[in-house]
Amino acid sequence: MSTTSAEPDAPRAGRPRRRRGWSFWLGLALVLSGLAILGWVGWQLYGTNIVSQKRHERTVERLQQEWDEPSGAADVQTDQGVADAILRIPAFGDDFAVPILEGTAEDTLASGIGHFDDSAAPGKVGNYALAGHRITHGEPLRDMPDLQPGDELIVETRDAVYTYVLDTGGDDLRVPFTAGWVVDAVPVNPDGGTGPDPDAKRLITLTTCAELFHTDDRLIAFGHLDSVDKR
């Protein structure tokens, strides 16, 4: 009986690999771009707040430690500038305490409330002009539209506590960012509308963005010094 051995099958020719077309790479690029944008938005809305609020707390603690020492300094140096006061706004809660730093540079406003260069010092004759973020970077003035005439702005320094009272609400005045008159020593509205108490000599001005997202307009609130207490 004869047997025949089966010959091995011939190897199959491999299928040619399909090249990915331009539409695949374009789609991938769009997905990655979308993820990057979502990551950036998330960082701006949440990450910067966490970082800035920790800076706020750390700087406030450093100031209070210095002021509690008999020979402590009146200010503290931070990586973002010099802090020399603390702003408290009771309408925003009993735990609201944000450091006030000199200047209004981007890094400064990311670390607290900024004090406009060349504006008056706390309690002095003139306009103590301040700026702060309404969204991101700690967003200390997010609820500024809720402020009402009569609300207090308390500025604490090493030597004294200055209590200012608002004469205008937080959303009573909206101006373009170019309206420099609001930080003048004696602000006078060129349109004859909302302005500070004309009889007040020691003023405070709060400025922040008019909208939660990008805007070239600013919300302005004016107040006057009501009392001074030794710290």
Rank of each mutant, 00 (worst) to 15 (best):
R218G: 07
M1S: 05
V161C: 07
L141Y: 10
V188S: 11
S23T: 08
I89S: 15
D94M: 05
D226C: 04
H214D: 14
G192T: 04
H133I: 11
P16E: 13
T104H: 05
P16K: 11
H115D: 07
A73R: 05
N189P: 13
T108D: 11
P11K: 04
T4G: 14
H115Q: 04
P198H: 12
Y46E: 01
T194G: 13
R142T: 04
D167G: 07
G39W: 03
A121C: 12
G81Y: 02
V161E: 07
G195T: 03
T205G: 07
P190R: 15
G47M: 04
D229N: 01
N49E: 10
D191S: 11
R18H: 12
A120Y: 13
P145Y: 11
D84V: 06
P187K: 04
F116T: 05
V188R: 01
T136S: 11
K54Q: 13
V76K: 06
T215W: 06
A13D: 00
L203Q: 09
G14L: 00
D94S: 09
C209V: 01
I50K: 09
K124S: 03
R62V: 00
D117M: 05
I135N: 10
A83C: 11
G27K: 04
T178W: 05
W181E: 05
Q65M: 09
A131Y: 15
